[in-house]
Computed example of a mutant assay.
Amino acid sequence: MPGRRDPWLDNAKAVLIVVVVVGHAIVLMPSGPLKSQAYDFIYYFHMPAFVLVTGYLSRSFRWTRRHLWSLVTTLVVPYLVFELLMALWRVHVVEQVDSLDVLSPLWLNPHWPMWYLVVLVMWRLATPVLGRHPVMVPLSVAVSLLAGTVDVELFDINRALGLLPFFVIGLHLPRGVLQAAKARGSGLAGLVVLGGLWWLAERTDDHWSTQWLYYRASYDSLDATLAEGMEIRAQLIVLALLGTFAVLTLVPRRTSPLTQVGTYTMGVYLLHGFVIRLAEHEGYADAMPGDGWASLLITVAAAVALAMLLGWRPVATKALWLVDPVNTAGGWLRRRADARRERSTDAPPSATLEPHGRGPRR
């Protein structure tokens, strides 16, 4: 059927957003070697994988009025809203900082985890150029390697440049690669790769610190020369691609409980940070049974449950008015726009906003 959603892609998005939540939740654990290993293991691949799949789903983006408007309503507006909400949450609810002045400048220097929305806007705007020719793949790698020579916090440009190869690879990803990831028996190879990354995460602290895995810090700030920095980043890009493929081999191929979550990944991404901050404020680490496997398993299970809850349709649809206030029926900006049209006697019927989900897929 034309236009039918691929459950594997929705499952892939769901798996990756769950891994993102798990990665953020592990920070709450009591400090120890297992926490450091688990954190580095996830950060080897979780955001690169999410970026690559986002690139793959962004291939249809063009500089048309419809696509640009969708970019504003589904990314820019939520960023403006949630950047402020997260700042207020950190000041007045979890008391992580004492005033908004500490977090300024709001909107110009994105705060965790809102950087992704700003960076995605930049990538999407560049998509018609980045997707024009496969030569953009090696060029994007070169840009990422050279990005470590500068330190630009404005709109998290450093991270946009550092993670650029994964978005561009997603734009040019051959369908055969996805078919290979979905092939029977590929999951065994994926488990072997992930096992290797887990083993590596325990043994690389002397070679690269966790800061390298964010793709944002300059080589100077990481005490590396240009040659050393480029070598380490190139190694991390290769590891991230291997980890991405490995995770995709484990994605369910048919409709599953994950499929529904995959249609609401933006809501899960934007909302889970508030719960993570609250759990930290309430002393999550103190409630854990030490820094070993019991705490890790409890934390992973709680993070998976949180992601599934936020992506559960009865919850996710109620949150859409805040996550996508322009396009969602009942959204506060949508209601204001509808009210203005009702008051205007000469507004044409075509002025109605496009229904949610008609823009480029996220």
Rank of each mutant, 00 (worst) to 15 (best):
residue 344 S to Q: 14
residue 44 Y to M: 11
residue 152 V to M: 11
residue 339 A to T: 12
residue 155 F to C: 05
residue 310 L to Y: 01
residue 334 R to Y: 11
residue 135 V to F: 09
residue 313 R to Q: 15
residue 13 K to A: 13
residue 137 V to G: 00
residue 54 T to P: 04
residue 214 Y to P: 03
residue 356 H to I: 15
residue 334 R to H: 15
residue 322 L to C: 09
residue 231 E to I: 09
residue 48 P to W: 00
residue 242 L to N: 05
residue 285 A to Y: 07
residue 42 I to F: 11
residue 53 V to T: 02
residue 111 H to I: 12
residue 221 S to T: 12
residue 350 S to V: 08
residue 139 L to D: 03
residue 159 R to T: 04
residue 15 V to Q: 00
residue 104 S to H: 13
residue 50 F to M: 13
residue 353 L to K: 05
residue 88 L to E: 11
residue 86 M to N: 12
residue 190 G to K: 01
residue 328 T to K: 06
residue 144 S to W: 06
residue 243 G to Q: 02
residue 229 G to K: 00
residue 280 E to G: 15
residue 120 L to A: 14
residue 124 R to W: 14
residue 190 G to E: 02
residue 124 R to Q: 13
residue 292 G to R: 05
residue 224 A to W: 03
residue 98 D to Q: 15
residue 228 E to A: 11
residue 52 L to C: 10
residue 134 P to L: 08
residue 214 Y to N: 09
residue 209 S to N: 12
residue 304 V to A: 04
residue 26 I to K: 00
residue 331 G to I: 02
residue 125 L to G: 04
residue 338 D to W: 08
residue 97 V to K: 10
residue 158 N to H: 11
residue 82 F to R: 01
residue 97 V to W: 11
residue 214 Y to L: 14
residue 20 V to N: 00
residue 171 L to F: 05
residue 255 T to M: 06
residue 273 G to L: 04
residue 85 L to M: 15
residue 149 T to K: 12
residue 130 L to R: 02
residue 105 P to E: 08
residue 285 A to G: 07
residue 260 Q to A: 15
residue 257 P to D: 10
residue 123 W to C: 02
residue 323 V to S: 02
residue 48 P to S: 01
residue 287 A to M: 15
residue 227 A to D: 12
residue 164 L to V: 01
residue 164 L to M: 13
residue 38 A to P: 00
residue 28 L to W: 01
residue 39 Y to L: 05
residue 215 Y to R: 04
residue 11 N to F: 03
residue 177 V to W: 14
residue 193 V to K: 04
residue 176 G to Q: 11
residue 158 N to C: 13
residue 70 S to V: 07
residue 261 V to K: 00
residue 353 L to N: 12
residue 3 G to Q: 11
residue 43 Y to K: 01
residue 234 A to S: 15
residue 254 R to T: 12
residue 144 S to C: 11
residue 311 G to I: 00
residue 352 T to Q: 15
